[in-house]
Design a binder for these strands. Structure first.
Lengths: 196, 196, 196, 196
DNA sequence: GATGAATGAGCATTCATTCAT
DNA sequence: TATGAATGAATGCTCATTCAT
């Protein structure tokens, strides 16, 4: 008896993550994913109820990876500021590695059904919250060490994630993208206002 | 000067913008748009080659609106900082008004064909560049007036647009969203680092 | 502009009736029906929400035909008994004409969803009731004319319909099927018990 | 003599009979049956060539049960008429016990292949014939005892089976179904015509 | 220009059947 | 014998696009 181990399941998720990131939910067919994984279409349905279910599992995997990157960096030595630089670079590498193609300015959603939306909330939301939590702790550490200003650490963490996204997309609209990372981070840390 | 019948064309675009923003490209059917506009499905194809073509026209309209908001504000009285606050509020109002529903964390794209991708580049890119340009001028004005630090104004403009997006999505992951606008802007202007 | 007249709809129903009667609900594909009608698959869905909806419309048509046969015969001259013989022959001809193939002993159902089940009740049930009603009137007429015994006319009508079904299926299990019609009807009218 | 392991086979058939009666051939999956029996899907295929083969075995079992009921009653004391009343009640109980759900008016068949159709003929037909045979004997006995009229006993037997089916379905279209059994049987025995 | 009926390629999903263990 | 993971043919349904009127 072959065991329904999670190896196949993991392979499917891995490939689905690649394809969803490159072609999006709608343009990625279950056949695509099955083909890329080297299994038959029906096999995907042994592990996932339907395409949306697979998508949720894929998002879950995606955020787990991101969380793992964060957790690893948090425990490394370095100043809070250094950690945040390291996180930025790792995230950008990770996203580049997905070879995602998605348009920076696109209205898109999955029109998830109420049930799935609830499942997303119970799967993805906590991951994002956990990411914000870790970054918050780093920021709080910086505040305690008099490195950062006294700000709401969670708000700053959220702004930080958004800034990483901006760096990633800057290549679409700005030149010199290699240099952008440092310059945008500099803006994030120093702000726009002149100091008096 | 527009031809008389482009009134129909404009109505289609207006409704398409609403629907694309609410349901995304794939979940919005040509029937939906035609129905909302009060014309027959075939009529849409009199004005647009295909659905992607309509989408591009819709994005164009979207960025024209944004550009108009920007241009209007640029010429109003006020400090550069005041102008940027005003822009933020107007953008958020505008996006709220579209009642867009799209998920903050979603891989999605339209898998545009090479030809369409090129058309996007020739339509949307210039609009975004123009937006960055206007904001750059405001920022440069602030630099000249010693209000802002000496930064790359285009990079700062890009970061600013991204910050507006962050404010919009903060309501998904943070509480107190009414207060977020001011606090995130404060972070944008003052930065994270403690000033010495 | 071509008008969405009911000609196409009627043709689809006609062909669906034939095919459902010959191959059953599950073995009949929407493609089959579309092909037999000479339209594309999608066209079927212009007129019917889904396959079950088409099935219901088909049953409706089926019972309308049966009702029409009944109504016609009721108003013809003849004794009640003669009318019932005529009805029997017409029904058997009609069913033969459908070339139905369905097995006399088969557990089968459509596992209709609650909603469809309700629709069946509001579509088919009244037709069957109407059939029973017409036959009841003929039987009541026979009772009034002292031709039939004093029985519950609706119960007798139901038994009569069942007897027609028996005649139809008798060919599967009994020989001499040409003769069966008269003999089974004779049993229906005279009963099994010896008269004293 | 049965092999020891046909216990599994019997269990599968028992459960298949329940499920086919409740959900029909197409809506019942092999998984359903395996699950209800507590064996793996593959096990079903150790005992039955395919789903149709299992269905035939199930029909066989069904008619064996019916035959057993008949045989038992035939040898009990009582007048022919009493025996037929007893048979009716036992059949109705048996069918109720299967909790069958199938629609009274449905075109349905299995679209059996020629080979399987032949197998049906060699399995089910003889059983039905045997049922008719037993009932024929009871009827012949009634004729001999001057209780019944001089009719073709096999035809009457067939009509009797059909009448039982009518009783079963009468609850769908007539009220007072508890009373229907006796009244429809009365119609069967006494006929519709007034006696002179 | 305007319509909307018709088309059919495309895709998600199911499930009987197989076969390696 | 028994298992159940894997298969892939089959099918219902959608929707962008066309075109006769």
């Amino acid at each position: 008896m072959r065991r329904k181990d999670s190896i196949t399941r993991d392979k499917i998720i891995k490939n689905a993550l690649q394809m969803f990131a490159q072609k999006g939910f709608f343009k990625t067919t279950v056949d695509d994913i099955a083909g890329a994984t080297g299994v038959a279409k029906g096999t995907v349905y042994l592990y996932f109820k339907d395409k949306q279910d697979l998508y949720i599992a894929t998002m879950d995997e995606h955020f787990n990876s991101a969380l793992a990157l964060l957790a690893e960096t948090e425990n490394m030595p370095g100043t809070p500021s250094e950690k945040m630089h390291r996180i930025t670079n790792e995230f950008i590498n990770y996203i580049m590695h997905l070879r995602t193609n998605y348009m920076p300015f696109t209205f898109e959603n999955l029109n998830l059904t109420g049930k799935t939306l609830k499942k997303i909330n119970t799967t993805v939301q906590p991951k994002v919250s956990a990411m914000i939590e870790i970054i918050s702790r780093i920021i709080q550490d910086g505040i305690d060490k008099q490195e950062f200003r006294e700000v709401d650490p969670r708000l700053a963490a959220f702004h930080f994630l958004s800034t990483i996204r901006a760096i990633f997309f800057s290549s679409y609209y700005l030149t010199n993208n290699a240099i952008n990372t440092e310059n945008i981070l500099e803006l994030f840390f120093e702000g726009l206002n002149k100091r008096r």
